[in-house]
Each structure stands twice: as structure tokens, then as C-alpha cells.
Amino acid sequence: MAYQIVDKCVNCTACEMVCPNDAISADVNQFNIDPLLCTECAEAFADPQCTSICPVEGAILDELGEAVNPPGSLTGIIPLVAA
């Protein structure tokens, strides 16, 4: 059970600061989540912390590869308009 950051990441460092497990670190072009350390914040918080502060839609995927914050969910910009 672990989340994954993809290349939409803008390197804002917010997730790294709020992760309770120190599972997130900077890589060359984006941040990464260590799947061995990530617990999706189960038992620690009601909501996973990285996905609660990440400002970029589609930057964090769940274990099924689905965006935890899908397009339009954070900015209100509907994908058709953004495209």
C-alpha cells in the first residue's frame, strides 16, 4: 500500500514537509515516495498528508494508478478549459 508521485510534480516540497513517515524525498526532476515507508498515512491521520497538500492535479497516484486528486478537483479548472 503506497502512493506514487509522477512527473507532473512541480517540486514544491510541500508533501515532503508533511509526510509523517519521511517517505518522500527529492530526486532529479521530481519528488519520490519510498514505497517501503509509505503507509498512505493509515492510522496516523484521517487523510493521507501528501495528497491533502499537493497543489497539482494528477501528480500523486494511488496503488491502482489512479490520480488521487483528479483534474479539476483542486483548481476548479475543468479539463476541457485547461486543454
Binding site: C12, T13, A14, I53, P55, T75
Partner: peptide
Amino acid sequence: APACNIQCNYCNRKYD
């Protein structure tokens, strides 16, 4: 200070 704790409708977090 790259991280933010709110979203404003006049801001795009792709700040680069």
C-alpha cells in the same frame, strides 16, 4: 519558500 498551504484562484503553482 516553494511550498504553499492554500490555493488562490489567481495563482498557478507551476511557478518556474
